[in-house]
Amino acid sequence: MTTIDPAAAVRPGTPVAPPKHLVELTVDGETVRVAEGTTVLQACRSAGHDDIPTLCYGDTLTPKNACRVCMVEVEGSRTLVPSCSRTVDAGMVVRTDTERVRHSRRMVLEFLGSSTDLSVAANVGRWNEEYGVDTERYGSERATKAQPVVRDNELYVRDYEKCILCYKCVDACGSQWQNTFAIAVAGRGFDARIAAEYDAELPDSACVYCGNCIAVCPTGALMFTTEHDMRAAGNWDESRQTQTDTICPYCGVGCQLTLHVQDASIVKVTSPSDHSVTHGNLCIKGRFGFQHVQNRD
């Protein structure tokens, strides 16, 4: 008679995690074992290489590998490899800091820095120093994406001089999360841009002001009006800000909010990207509907 371990008995439909195979690879000479399907970036990070720069990568989005700043060298590959999207193979030999890799990163940062405003993009200043970025060598006549800031609604501003066309806002607005498709990449080449249909202003677009595009923007091209105006006035000071996690006061879905507070005022609202309810996303009420606690007149 067969005996069944009661602990092993599962109720119908209870999912069983698929078996995970481990893959061994080398990162900068060091052997690393990670689960099959892991990206090279994740594998490098698990091996302690936290210094691979990324811009278009977002932990809630499918890697677009458009910015090409996370490139690494993989033995046997004719070109460099985007670490954010390439999954590991057994026996892969990865190098994260060769001259070739550093050259590529320098050039990508120079290309972006010479055409767009990266002044508020996190970490870019540090990387520029690390990789010896020199945007002056492109001359003063170079083409740039300089253009006026778009203020067509009261909730957030779009400063496309800061846009590096990472596609994250389009993916967040589109099939990966919000499924509103208010914006897309329009045009081609250097003229490609993020736009609503026929470059309409947001109030004439399908935008629902969830702000999930703001949440994923790596360069501050999309910004809460509060933050934008405070920055313009020189009042934005993250060292004076607190971040408090709480739950949205509107419907019963229970979205976790991170309230960014400066000088006793909520200046921005985000949601943790690793939260099982929101995955970093909110709706217009959660993102912008906080004013009622600060309208104190």
Partner: peptide
């Protein structure tokens, strides 16, 4: 250039 990746779009 389609404009998708930085090296080609700006390069």
């Amino acid at each position: 250039s389609c404009g998708q990746c930085v090296p080609c779009r700006v390069g």
